[in-house]
């Protein structure tokens, strides 16, 4: 077992983990943060995407033991205490989810995009979520939701 100390969604966490425990399993099973979804477990689907040090990362390709002193933010950490974030309400309003399996990863990827680029073009949005697969909704409404959230965060409405 390896002992790790890290910050998850603003909270200090200390645990002993087996070396082969992935960050995704650590979040879901040790911390009960089941918003992070696990699909392919080899980096291609994006469902497990979280922020590590503010940057998006596949939690299935990191071992919890690697995260000493790291700051991890999951979909739970991107959700306000009451109500929904701009991205979350835009996803709801635009019907950008059906089963919701891909949604936490989509929102993490979109969050990173909007933090760096508050007014992305449609092409930039498509590039930012190219690594996140959605099996049921299709991407048109997801792209529209991110456009709407960007506009809402800028304080305006869509043209």
């Amino acid at each position: 077992m390896i002992s790790v100390r890290l910050t998850v969604n603003g909270r200090a966490v200390e645990r002993d983990v087996p070396p082969r425990r992935s960050l995704a399993e650590f979040l879901r099973e040790d911390l009960g943060l089941t918003g992070t979804h696990v699909g392919c477990e080899h980096g291609v689907c994006g469902a497990c995407t979280v922020l590590v040090g503010g940057r998006s990362a596949r939690s299935c390709l990191l071992f919890a033991a690697q995260l000493e002193d790291a700051t991890v933010t999951t979909i739970e950490g991107l959700t306000p205490a009451a109500g929904l974030s701009a991205l979350q309400s835009a996803f709801r309003d635009c019907h950008a989810l059906q089963c919701g399996f891909c949604t936490p990863g989509m929102i993490v990827a979109a969050h990173e995009l909007l933090a760096e680029n508050p007014a992305p073009s449609r092409e930039e949005i498509r590039a930012a979520i190219a690594g996140n697969l959605c099996m049921c909704t299709g991407y048109v409404s997801i792209v529209r939701a991110i456009e709407q959230a960007a506009a809402a965060r800028r304080g305006g409405s869509l043209p």
Partner: peptide, 9 residues
């Protein structure tokens, strides 16, 4: 290379 989350690591 790949996607943003891949390039970040």
């Amino acid at each position: 290379i790949g996607h943003r989350a891949i390039r970040n690591r």
